[in-house]
Write a protein that binds this DNA or RNA. Sequence first.
DNA 1: AATGAATGAGCTTTCATTCAT
DNA 2: TATGAATGAAAGCTCATTCAT
Lengths: 195, 195, 195, 195
Amino acid sequence: MGRVQRKRDERVRRIVAAAAEVFGERGYEAANLEDVAERLDVTKGSLYYYFAGKDELATAAVETLGTDWTERLEKLDTPGGAAERLRALLREHIAIAVREYPAALRLFLVPDSWPDDLRARIRELRRRHDLVFRRVVREGVAAGEFAVVDEDAALQALHASMSQAPLWCSHLAGDAQDRAMDHLADTLMKLVAPD
Amino acid sequence: MGRVQRKRDERVRRIVAAAAEVFGERGYEAANLEDVAERLDVTKGSLYYYFAGKDELATAAVETLGTDWTERLEKLDTPGGAAERLRALLREHIAIAVREYPAALRLFLVPDSWPDDLRARIRELRRRHDLVFRRVVREGVAAGEFAVVDEDAALQALHASMSQAPLWCSHLAGDAQDRAMDHLADTLMKLVAPD
Amino acid sequence: MGRVQRKRDERVRRIVAAAAEVFGERGYEAANLEDVAERLDVTKGSLYYYFAGKDELATAAVETLGTDWTERLEKLDTPGGAAERLRALLREHIAIAVREYPAALRLFLVPDSWPDDLRARIRELRRRHDLVFRRVVREGVAAGEFAVVDEDAALQALHASMSQAPLWCSHLAGDAQDRAMDHLADTLMKLVAPD
Amino acid sequence: MGRVQRKRDERVRRIVAAAAEVFGERGYEAANLEDVAERLDVTKGSLYYYFAGKDELATAAVETLGTDWTERLEKLDTPGGAAERLRALLREHIAIAVREYPAALRLFLVPDSWPDDLRARIRELRRRHDLVFRRVVREGVAAGEFAVVDEDAALQALHASMSQAPLWCSHLAGDAQDRAMDHLADTLMKLVAPD
DNA sequence: AATGAATGAGCTTTCATTCAT
DNA sequence: TATGAATGAAAGCTCATTCAT
């Protein structure tokens, strides 16, 4: 992989980052390529040299954002039992959602009209993301630290609550926001609390 | 209020219903008036006889849907303690979300660009809706039946989880879907479980 | 002509008056029938019972306004020489323009696309209106009171100046407006001043 | 300023010229972008690459036309006294109105609904245009060559008469038209004639 | 590789006009 | 007579997409 390829990859990376911002802020439909280009100081047309169209760009954005997010959670190597580790995961996930991707919810609400392969890739992304949490939950349950009514239900509730956190946390200021995020994490821990 | 007015009201009601469907399915941006009109077997222009524009129509849809939903929950007169009543509320709310308004989440994700008064009305709607749950939770806590880390956090988690339920319940068939909904309700009860 | 016909005439008269206001304020293109109807507390559709369409209504408005205006000038029976009479005509014309039909200029700027017969009627109106002034000017010239380079040019200048008077007189307050109108009339008298 | 910019400027210039034609012929409301585009052999949408909307295009048209017109009059360096110079100005102004911008009157009758800044720019344009005439009139008065009842009234009358000249001159043929224009200019000179 | 330009389809909105009642 | 309702054509505007340079 030569210098040329590296340069191209870097270019793509920056485009996707910009796209993730715009799509995240406005959602797929309301986002427009002009704004993505503007953020990169290039023209709309240039994007087509790297991406076949809006769909592909949005998919790449979702993919990158999803992967980054997942990896940051995967790297979070907290020592201790399942409870400590889950608590750390929740806190980190909420922090990322509120601070960095306040509109990720919109970003993941992809149009139903997308081709199957794009949808499949996104589903796969979510599955991998979900696995980070699911593993800890499952270990906690096995170790008797946690108890769940239903694993799927618990995980859905966790994800849903975290992804909507920005909707009511964003408008809070520094300390109050921190406290709200902590309270949410603590609250969600109850979902897997032993009886 | 004469026959004419009644007829107009009925007409408006049907338009709003159609709009709620379309906006709910596609979200505000992706929805278009052509589709709303088509569902009513009229032409686009006719809608403007009843509504000043897309915004107003969407607001009406959100408002109607929100009010109906809240009222159905308010009417739910379950006997018993806070736990029984909350459980019934959760189950009903989830059922409505999954069966009748699978895309309500999208509908409530209103554009940031809306005028303040529209946003204010929507916020008010949500507040009233929230109150139905908040009251029961508060009573349960007072009665020692429930314990919450933080009232706001608990309620946010409840709402978020329920509103996203369709995303993973819709594709399930009859019995499996019922079971999933029950599991979710039971899971969410843990959020307020006493220690 | 029975009571029915009289009632209809009265109805037509009021519609035309409202139309003259609206067309005068906005000009032909920008005016819309909804506003005309609203001013009369009726619905758009009703207007079609009396007029075949927008064109006919506008023509009637122009015609009525033109006729009224002309008749008021014709009735102005000032004693004295041509100078006194012309001065009175100018002053009255300007007053009507500024106070009552500040946008008459817009009203008379009819679209080029109108059918020939409508245009012909309007031209005839203007001719009759013009005649009121032309007669006095001609008499003044014959009597040696006036001198004109060219009768047509003088009359065109008179009309143009008077019809645009509202553009710079409307924003003036009571006395100042009166003075401006007087000055304009005096100024225009110079157009026919003897050498 | 590179070749690209020059090309863009030229493009803009041609668009504005086309717009001035269309707006001038039909007035603001009746004019439509389709027609402007058609005259340039492009599609409607292309205009938006250069102008934000109908308002901006119309303003540019008014501005360009107004500036050009004023500059042509300013460059008119006639020798002689105030009378000779005013006579030349009138003649040139009338010629431009009749021959080149027969519907400028319509163009300058901007909608009341325009934003204040657009209206302000147009007013400024008119002020500068007016100044060309006002200066000569004032000099003539100072030199005792002219006498006016009221400077403002005289100038308003001059402008109004000239701007409406096309309404009755356009339909005249070659020589007759020339003569009519001359007569108008001579007639208007009387407005400032000494007593 | 990137740009400026253009396109065309699709959207929201307006409004003269028609018509059953 | 008058109304409420609906229509359809046309307007202004947006934007993903294409393409010559």
